[in-house]
């Protein structure tokens, strides 16, 4: 793994999300609690809704277009046969780090 420093955790509102553009497409960083962040695809497999614009609740997000709900631990859509990609993410000293290998960057910054 090669961890890339993305931003300070406080750049993401609690129970909110922000988008990171990557070679594998837009990834949303969901901040579900004070020190808990998940990374997953920003694109809803249903109609392409921007998941970072959804309401974040518990460890889930609801798509703003048609209310599909995704479990951020697994990417599984609740009650639907669909899934979004999830990515390794960690928090270190108040910074959010994404795994560069997983998001299509060959070398760490």
């Amino acid at each position: 793994m090669s961890w890339i420093d993305i931003a300070a955790i406080d750049d993401i509102p609690e129970r909110g999300a922000r988008v990171v553009k990557t070679p594998v497409g837009c990834i949303a960083l969901f901040r579900t609690a004070v020190a808990e962040v998940f990374a997953a695809s920003n694109t809803c497999p249903h109609k392409g809704g921007p998941l970072a614009d959804g309401i974040v609740h518990g460890q889930k997000v609801t798509c703003p277009l048609h209310n599909w709900v995704f479990d951020l631990n697994t990417g599984q859509a609740v009650g639907e046969d669909a899934r979004i990609a999830t990515y390794p993410v960690r928090i270190e000293a108040g910074r959010v780090l994404l795994d560069g290998m997983a998001v299509g960057k060959r070398s760490a910054a």
Binding site: K21, L98, K105
Partner: peptide
């Protein structure tokens, strides 16, 4: 705006 743009760096 996006929090970061890793495509540019790439």
């Amino acid at each position: 705006a996006p929090l970061a743009d890793l495509t540019l760096e790439a």
